[in-house]
């Protein structure tokens, strides 16, 4: 039995080496195939939908899998939020789906914006709510079978982080004045010799914050999906059906964890954005 096992693994290794040598390793990597962006909607055992290609002035703006699910999230948000806002025009007492959304809206306002921004938090609540619900909807749409997670695309998370960056900088400059804002980057009471070093560090810190926001959301959403696929592929790596119960149970556990992560990442993105806005607007503390 050991002989056949060794022979099998030797054959597998030889096959893999041959594929890598032929440059096919990348193409046959089915985990990456599911996680990365693609130009077709994949309902694999049943059918596939090929999406159209567009290009404008030589720039590829074709509609991809992630774009479709981003639009779906936006569409759902528009429909639901119009319903919610209409319900408040009728009466201030929430009813039905409005009840559910009121919990989240109050949470973002009272637990995220109010303690971290302080006075004048009202003008930032709309942006924070938009970011929170968009990320939440994209994350949860990614957990539906056959769908794709738009937030596991680095371009999407980078765009979200850049909007946070712009809101932070512009509101900071409007509150403190452009000169006062850059002067306020260096905290009070720092020894004179340290001021040049601190200025450079704080200026670089302005750009690492949104970079960290983008990478955090992207890596969290991608990593969960890769772990689920890796656990399922244990069945095919070990080539026995007896691994299936274990790997399905573990994949299910990670899937449930993903529900928590989807909520937590939307919360953390909003929380950190609001914290950075608060730091830019009220520089004195």
């Amino acid at each position: 039995m050991l002989d056949t096992l060794t022979a099998n693994s030797a054959k597998l290794a030889a096959d893999t080496l041959k594929q890598v040598a032929a440059g096919q390793g990348e193409k046959d990597n089915w985990i990456m195939h599911h996680v990365l962006d693609a130009d077709k909607l994949d309902f694999k055992p049943f059918f596939e939908i090929q999406l159209p290609h567009f290009s404008l002035f030589g720039i590829d703006i074709s509609i991809t899998k992630h774009v479709v699910f981003m639009w779906l999230a936006s569409l759902l948000l528009i429909i639901l939020m119009i319903k919610v806002s209409k319900s408040y025009k009728k009466s201030l007492i929430p009813k039905g789906v409005t009840n559910f959304f009121e919990v989240f809206i109050i949470f973002v306002r009272d637990e995220i914006a109010k303690p971290t921004i302080g006075t004048g938090y009202q003008q930032f609540v709309p942006y924070l709510l938009t970011a929170f619900f968009f990320i939440l909807f994209c994350n949860f749409l990614g957990l539906v079978p056959f769908s794709a997670t738009a937030t596991s695309n680095i371009s999407v998370t980078a765009t979200l982080a850049i909007s946070s960056f712009l809101v932070t900088q512009i509101s900071g400059m409007r509150k403190n004045g452009i000169f006062g804002y850059f002067k306020g980057l260096v905290p009070h009471g720092v020894p004179i010799a340290l001021v040049p070093v601190m200025a450079v560090v704080e200026f670089i810190g302005l750009f690492t914050k949104p970079f960290a926001l983008a990478i955090r959301l992207f890596a969290n959403m991608t990593a969960g999906h890769i772990i689920i696929f890796a656990l399922i592929s244990l069945i095919f790596v070990m080539k026995t059906v007896y691994v299936a119960p274990v790997s399905i149970a573990l994949a299910l556990f990670i899937y449930l964890l993903e529900i928590l992560v989807a909520l937590l990442q939307a919360y953390i993105f909003t929380m950190l954005s609001s914290l950075f806005i608060g730091m830019a607007v009220h520089q004195d503390h």
């Binding site: 960290a212 990478i215 955090r216 990593a223 953390i268 929380m271 950190l272």
Partner: peptide, 8 residues
């Protein structure tokens, strides 16, 4: 979240 960001 900050620690997690660095390790990510």
């Amino acid at each position: 979240a900050l620690i997690e960001g660095i390790s990510l």
